[in-house]
């Protein structure tokens, strides 16, 4: 312990002695030379102050974070959810309708004045797309855009059915009248039974009225057709509708008979059931 303190004391004395000895100073000419050298070789431009560097770093990091946040907060736009303004949709729809109208007008201008329903249907079929689904969608869109045409067609169909029904009723009533006259003749030849013949007589009176009075029978025919209308089906029977050939033949018959509205409605119904049926005769 004493040795350490003695050593420290002697080292301090040595240090003091050295400091007393070493009192030289750097010569002034050396100082001037070194300082001039330092001034000459200094950086020609004042670089950014030290406090500017952390500020610049902070600004850079802040801007980067802001950009990253801006990018990450943007909503994910899916292709399906891209919204088109309603005005554009209506414009596109109008343009499509106009093009359809113009094409229809051109078709009308080029077509002959009187076109049968079958021919028009064939024309429609030629202009129709190949796929039935597209045809259905187009048809549904047509129905949606032209409800008045559909109701008019349905009205025409009903009137045509009514007319056809009345004609068939008239034929049936005439056959019934013939049967009644035959029965009356038979009753005259046989012994008359008043009790039994009474209903026959009433019927015969009615039959006479029918058979004898032809113009008046039209009212009765109309009444009967009204009764038949509810019973009778479409102009082409269900059995006819089973095969496309028989159905299309029925439609042709309607067209030949002058029942164009009926034929048209039947053809439309036919096309709903048999959209892919190729009518070679119509094509010819």
């Amino acid at each position: 312990m004493s040795n350490e303190s003695e050593n420290r004391g002697e080292e301090r004395r040595l240090s003091d002695t050295y400091k007393a000895l070493a009192n030289e100073r750097a010569p002034d000419h050396l100082n001037e030379r070194v300082l001039r050298l330092a001034a000459e070789r200094r950086t020609p431009y004042m670089r950014a102050r030290a406090w500017m560097r952390p500020v610049a770093w902070a600004a850079t990091i802040g801007l980067s974070l802001a950009i990253v946040l801006e990018i990450t907060r943007l909503p994910q736009v899916e292709p399906d959810s891209i919204s088109i303004p309603a005005a554009d949709i209506s414009k596109a729809r109008d343009g499509r309708l106009e093009s359809k109208d113009s094409s229809a007008a051109e078709a009308k201008a080029t077509a002959p004045a009187t076109v049968s329903p079958v021919e028009s249907a064939i024309d429609l079929k030629r202009n129709r797309p190949a796929t039935p689904t597209a045809d259905r969608s187009e048809r549904s869109s047509k129905d949606a855009f032209a409800p008045k045409d559909l109701t008019v067609l349905r009205g025409g169909e009903e009137t045509a059915r009514a007319q056809a029904g009345s004609d068939q009723g008239a034929i049936a009533s005439r056959a019934d009248a013939d049967e009644l006259s035959a029965e009356r003749a038979l009753a005259k030849t046989m012994t008359p039974d008043v009790s039994a013949a009474q209903p026959v007589a009433t019927e015969s009176v009615a039959a006479d009225n029918i058979s004898m009075d032809e113009p008046a029978s039209e009212a009765a025919f109309a009444a009967m057709t009204n009764a038949h209308k509810s019973v009778s089906g479409p102009p082409c029977a269900e059995s006819v509708r089973d095969t496309p050939e028989s159905w299309i033949a029925c439609i042709r018959e309607l067209e030949e008979n002058g029942q164009e509205d009926e034929a048209r409605s039947q053809y439309e119904e036919f096309r709903r059931v048999f959209p892919d049926f190729e009518d070679r005769d119509a094509d010819k």
Partner: peptide, 18 residues
């Protein structure tokens, strides 16, 4: 002095030259 301040170098030099 690295930033171009010559006076800083002079101070530094005066500390260590002798």
């Amino acid at each position: 002095y690295q930033d171009g301040d010559v006076s800083a170098f002079e101070t530094l030099y005066r500390r260590h030259n002798d």
